[in-house]
Design a protein around this nucleic acid. Sequence first.
DNA 1: ATTAAAAACTAGGCTAAACTAAATAATGGT
DNA 2: ACCATTATTTAGTTTAGCCTAGTTTTTAAT
Lengths: 220, 220
Amino acid sequence: MELTTAEENYLKAIYHLSEEGKKSVSTNDIAAAIQTKPASVSDMLRKLGEKEVIQYRKYYGLQITELGKRLALQTIRKHRLWEVFLVDKLHFAWDEVHEVAEQLEHIQSPLLIERLDAYLNYPKFDPHGDPIPDEYGDVRSRPRIALNEMNIDQGGQIVAVKDSSAAFLRYLDKVGAYIGARIKVLDKVEFDGSVEILVDQKKTLFMSKDVASNILVLQS
Amino acid sequence: MELTTAEENYLKAIYHLSEEGKKSVSTNDIAAAIQTKPASVSDMLRKLGEKEVIQYRKYYGLQITELGKRLALQTIRKHRLWEVFLVDKLHFAWDEVHEVAEQLEHIQSPLLIERLDAYLNYPKFDPHGDPIPDEYGDVRSRPRIALNEMNIDQGGQIVAVKDSSAAFLRYLDKVGAYIGARIKVLDKVEFDGSVEILVDQKKTLFMSKDVASNILVLQS
DNA sequence: ATTAAAAACTAGGCTAAACTAAATAATGGT
DNA sequence: ACCATTATTTAGTTTAGCCTAGTTTTTAAT
């Protein structure tokens, strides 16, 4: 099964929307996600239906198939591996990688991805903390909790952010709350939901509820 | 000036043909080089002419412009840097890199290429020994000589191969005559043109004229 | 239950890049 | 210098992916 670049992008968007969005994925949602017009989406849905990566009945919505899920996860795997490469090896900043990875993810070469994975030492998470599917599409997603929902004295490791805007990522970098940092909740202010945490057993940090709710932690 | 992937491929082919082929580049040559039909080439030549990367008068032939040369060299630069990456970092064999590099060369991101270049330590030659243009398109091509044309006792460094077929590259790898190897001519057999060389000051190697004439050496 | 608004789809058109078939220009051999 | 061969270009289609405009279906409000 061969997908074009455009088809891969649609399928990836559909997969992401299916994951988060509760019910079915709408044509308008997809159009918004990939910056295109609903009419173009309708067209593409028909084609993706024919290729059996989604199950599609017009006006009734769609459902991604197992095949579709597998292909989408392959693209996501490639995207995230390239992000790791760009950040770890080429020293890109968190907020500079997305566009480039968006192009690199469409390179077709199973060998390349296999070698890249090995070269990067089989990373399990990308620089934003999102899990990297294995070559069969399996995602080992550990239970994560928003930092503001943790209890006092609980510890863990920062593994992801919800808001990955450039501004937010820069802020985190600056205060030292990077992905992978080991943290412990020292105090919580009931009044406004802000928290005080200990980072890497040396630095204490205050953050508002707004910030803390955007940081995902793997509890330990 | 923005070129599509197809335009980049045409321009690259035209550049290569202009370099080697003495006189003007023919429509048929281009068609053969990029595996397409002459009619498609005519079409594209008109477009490339409009974009002023070539000077084109139908039936009269074409000439690549300075602008075209610069753009072609940028693509070639990217291609060769990726080849270095694939061989040096991902341990691809010489004969496995071309297809993948052919895809990677079209990724658009000046920053990516800048960082990749630095990461690879500003290589001057690709794994086949071809020079890598700098970001302004300058090629530092040192004078090279075919191994069979060197004199006895002359030394040098293997910098390129003329025949880069998989079979030949594998053969060279096997006998240890890699790109970069320092060699010295120990003996030449007048009768059949075969040569005996010393590789890296330890290993002696016999090779036929056929083989030696396909190896380019930078004399020292 | 009706109907206005929103969502989704179809039709028709555009561009890039390819193709085949047909037309035209250049070339070479006598 | 002629004419047959070869090279090249034009014309007309095709496919993918997008668009706008217009139509149909669903939905939600009264």
